[in-house]
Amino acid sequence: MAVKTAARQEPVKLAKPGSWKRNLQRYKSLYILTIPLVLYFFIFNYVPMFGLLMAFEDFKPARGFFGSTWVGFKNFIDFFTAPNFLEILRNTFVISALGLAVGFPLSIVFALLINEIYIKWFKKTVQTISYMPYFVSTIVLCGLVIEFCSTNGLITNALVSLGLVERQNLLQNPKYFWAINLISDQWQGLGYGSIVFIAAITNVSGELHEAAAIDGANRLQRVWHITLPGIKPMVVSMLILKCGMLMTVGFDKILNLYNTAIYSTADVISTYVYRVGLNGGRYGYGAAVGLFNSVVNLILLLASNAISKKYAEQSLF
């Protein structure tokens, strides 16, 4: 596989560096294909970005973008000096990093385990069932979690009888929110998240496996030396993308799950923006917080891309 990837990069050397004209001639149709795509993203994604101006304004909807008072970086400074700034930042980072650190390896392992099942109907059934939670909408999931974690709820009952917690509503104690959120996320997303890896694993050439088996490699060795390297490009690019969204936490989920008693661990940037920016009518402030979030994400994305380029010799761009 590695050999083949190298082969793919060869044509780069063939094209004469800097020769736009030749490139244009050779890939005329590619250039033409680029136009609608660029237009699409320009119109629907770039044009609305003038809304980021809001972050530097005391934005009043009625006055619009050009009638609102320009306040420079005041909104940003307000956010950085807000009493719960550090808390929100920490929560956002921890919740997201936990999801990545646990969820990402878990879905690869799950994909590998699924791949080890030989009874076809069983494999198919498990796969189908494992995606099912993803079809449950977030709002329903949260309803169930709240019910199960209540003082007399199913999960609380189980944990109490195991002697792990005192009887209480688990969602009213700031200590448990990260765990509850992580586990419910994994319940919903594990099977679904592993799809891409299952797809990648099955794309790994079977001949290599057979050849290795003939050479006497056992199952684990083959997974380690053939399957994992085979899905590496997919894994790395997914990882970079996820790192680039490290400061983005699903908004719906937290909003429907948290309550005022556990803001100290559950409040994240997106819920804060919603509560203060939209509900509180402070649009400019909300936009500033959102923009800060985007910038942090961008930095993380660039950093992870650079790191991956250096160590994994693969990058998104």
Binding site: F41, F44, P48, G51, L52, M245, L298, L316
Partner: peptide, 20 residues
């Protein structure tokens, strides 16, 4: 790639989107 990736990071928000 950069042009497209940026849209994953930044969005203008509701009001400008609506105006477009």
């Amino acid at each position: 790639a950069l042009f497209i990736m940026v849209t994953m990071m930044f969005s203008g928000g509701l009001i400008p989107g609506y105006m477009v």
